[in-house]
Design a protein around this nucleic acid. Sequence first.
DNA 1: GGGCCCGCAGGG
DNA 2: CCCTGCGGGCCC
Length: 288
Amino acid sequence: MRKFGEIEGISRGQIFANRAELAKVGIHPPTQAGISGSSKEGADSIVLSGGYEDDRDYGDRILYTGAGGRDENTGRQIADQQLTRTNLALAKSKLDQLPVRVTRSHKHKSEFSPKEGYCYAGLYMVEDYWREKGISGHYIWHYSLVSCERLESKEQTGIRDNSPDYKETERKAVVVNRIIRDSTKAKRVKEWHRYQCQVCGLALETSAGLYAEAAHIQPLGMPHNGPDDESNILCLCPNHHILFDNGGFTINEDLSLNGIDGDLVTTKKHKINLNFVAYHQAHNQKID
DNA sequence: GGGCCCGCAGGG
DNA sequence: CCCTGCGGGCCC
């Protein structure tokens, strides 16, 4: 099973002698490839090693180049890159909003690189990706990655981001790990339904694969405190997710829909707890 | 520092 | 199974 998010016992700024050491602790399993990931699961980690001329490093924001299209010996771009394999994995990470571990090599020329070895730089999100003509004139895939630290400090409007103390870093790691843990349950429900909406059957096709959303029946937060469990999660398209969360329709005991024609689509594996359905209905009564 | 080539581990 | 890949060591 691919490990997303922070690796226990490894902190930001930690130096590793070589790629074998990085692989051993689980930060970046491949010993040579720059992107760790698969097209189905997404990418969990990247390494900036200085091999790609189109890379740009601004510290908390990184422009990373996809893999492929290079001459084995010279490293020059001699062909177009494709949105397949590990390049597709990074696209999937954007679609599913999965955090990517970033490590810089001493060979990567930037003020954020270590003098020697490999420096773990923490978690980043893939904000965007696109195809463009690189310096060589061949097409490359470019990924814009933003540090999770920066994303979180942006949310705290008006508060200056103080020098990161250990406790704060730990707290953030716990939060990110919870999001990942949640997303594995959400992913399981989506896969049971093959990403098809349980209301309308639609599965959105993107260049990075199918897209669906996980909707909690009894909401997670205060004051509802619904559980994060498969029996409390629905696989919905974005439109029906919004409608469900905002009283556009409810689900009856027999799984027929109230407010929309039809029935909720179910599968054998996915057991929905009717208590949560009743809770949702009680809190979303339509006034006719 | 650059070229060369032998590797392994992961992914399809 | 085959193929690929942001190593790494050694040579010059």
